[in-house]
């Protein structure tokens, strides 16, 4: 078992022990803006405002009611949070002013941390590639990020993906909006080690605050 899987299992076990039968409390304490979930009055404006509405399994409205009903596994393994495009329609329209986008992001992050996201969830996968990419140098390397996305499902699929997108890639290079030079060096921050240290520290502080074992 990998180190990150072990850590996810430890966090998950601690959460289950602490919040047995009270998933709302778990969300309130552990999920970003989770304390606002109970404010939902089930009007459904968020469900009707989401651009990816036809594609998710549960609307935010349903997710919030499922949290109150203690449907822990169903909520944390739902693909709904991963359909968020961060358009913020739901936030500005919610009559109870729930920060819905933040809660959905928070639930996605928490599910990921517990290792409960369905395997191969594409937005989870690219979110991880993106975060790892930006932390390496402090800035996003668009070429390496694109290549990592193409090759995330293996070499053969990667070549197929790259070939399918080569027209777009070449036209971007021609327009000087994608640089082949990024593969060797690329843009970066000077204080990369300071950035990495402060990010590690932030995780340490959060673990301390939430009393989690990670």
């Amino acid at each position: 078992m990998s180190e990150s899987n072990k850590a996810a299992n430890t966090v998950a076990a601690a959460a289950v022990a602490r919040y047995r039968n009270n998933f709302l409390k778990e969300v309130e304490e552990r999920v970003e803006d989770g304390d606002m979930v109970k404010m939902c009055m089930q009007c459904g404006v968020c469900a009707g405002s989401c651009p990816l509405g036809p594609h998710w399994e549960h609307s935010p409205q349903k997710i919030f009611m499922m949290i109150r009903a203690g449907k822990r596994d169903e909520v944390l393994s739902s693909d709904s949070m991963w359909m968020c495009t961060s358009c913020y329609n739901c936030i500005v329209r919610c009559p109870r002013q729930l920060p819905i986008t933040h809660i959905m992001h928070g639930l996605a992050h928490y599910a990921n941390r517990l290792g409960m996201v369905p395997k191969g969830q594409p937005t989870r996968d690219i979110a991880k590639l993106f975060w790892d990419n930006l932390l390496k140098t402090g800035r996003v390397n668009e070429l390496k990020f694109s290549l990592a996305m193409y090759f995330k499902d293996g070499f053969v699929q990667g070549i197929k993906n790259a070939l399918a997108m080569q027209g777009i890639g070449l036209s971007l290079m021609k327009a000087k909006r994608l640089s082949p030079m990024e593969i060797i060096g690329g843009h970066k921050c000077k204080d990369q080690s300071g950035i990495q240290k402060m990010i590690a520290k932030a995780r340490e502080i959060e673990d301390r605050r939430r009393g989690a074992l990670a």
Partner: peptide, 11 residues
């Protein structure tokens, strides 16, 4: 807008 998947609130 995609950093939340892996990056925590404080990070």
């Amino acid at each position: 807008s995609i950093g939340y998947g892996e990056g925590s609130e404080l990070q």
